[in-house]
Design a protein around this nucleic acid. Structure first.
Lengths: 124, 124
DNA sequence: AGTTAATATGAATAATATTTCATATGAATA
DNA sequence: TATTCATATGAAATATTATTCATATTAACT
């Protein structure tokens, strides 16, 4: 299979494809936090947060540094901000129902409606 | 857990987090294609391609329409192009080794090197 | 050195996602 | 309407990922 969009790209998106990690990113918008604080705020186990922070850091969605006993994690806003902006724009346009994506049935129905509509082909 | 970045966001990124689907998106850059052609080009089973196209279409990363017996799929460039641009920028900056992400050991070593470097904290 | 607080790690389990295979459905046309 | 080609679907089998739990490591301080 052609795979020019290499494994890296799929790792990049996989790392964002998890509610726990998205919550962490969201929380870090407020500013740098240590592991314990993140765990408390999100009401999750410390080890769960640590495991997930490691994945986020590997992809450089967050940076970290130790200060005494603690380790502080900081959001990589340069990357995360524009990504979420695109998501927001897309969701607003295409996932109108309370942030829910299209269901299988919704998709089928729309296909019927647009059966004789102008070609998407023509748009390109 | 706080989850303002709702399920939708995690679905959005999950759908991109798969090599088969990324290959499909990459191929559709060239222009609209039908299922059989995608399957042949990627040397994968037709049903695998169909299953994955469905996920892509649910998230509106592609659009589709039937023309006679065939169904043509078209890339949603408006969303996919800027997403991949951000990925490219990020990967170039942070994943220098042939597109590979940092390993666990690489991460540990870098932590040591930057132990006394200026605070990430200071950057915000 | 011993103790405590903060974080990290590994291995087992649980939860999800992907792929395959067999078959169904849809559309065109003889 | 029978046949053929194109696509879709469902269920089972695989593979991958997330979470939990127990414990290790690290750093500071007594």
């Amino acid at each position: 299979m052609r795979r020019n969009l290499s494994e890296t790209c799929s790792t990049f998106f996989s790392t964002l494809a998890n509610p726990t990690r998205l919550s962490i990113l969201e929380l870090l918008y407020e500013g740098p936090k240590n592991v314990t604080e993140i765990a408390k705020t999100l009401k999750q186990e410390q080890s769960l947060i640590s495991h997930n922070l490691r994945l986020l850091e590997r992809c450089r969605f967050v940076f970290s540094e130790r200060r005494k006993k603690e380790r502080f994690y900081t959001l990589n806003k340069e990357t995360i901000e524009p990504l979420l902006k695109i998501f927001g724009y897309h969701a607003k346009k295409y996932c109108p129902k309370k942030g829910k994506c299209l269901t299988q049935q919704g998709l089928r129905q729309q296909r019927k409606r647009t059966a004789s509509a102008p070609l998407y082909l023509a748009r390109q």
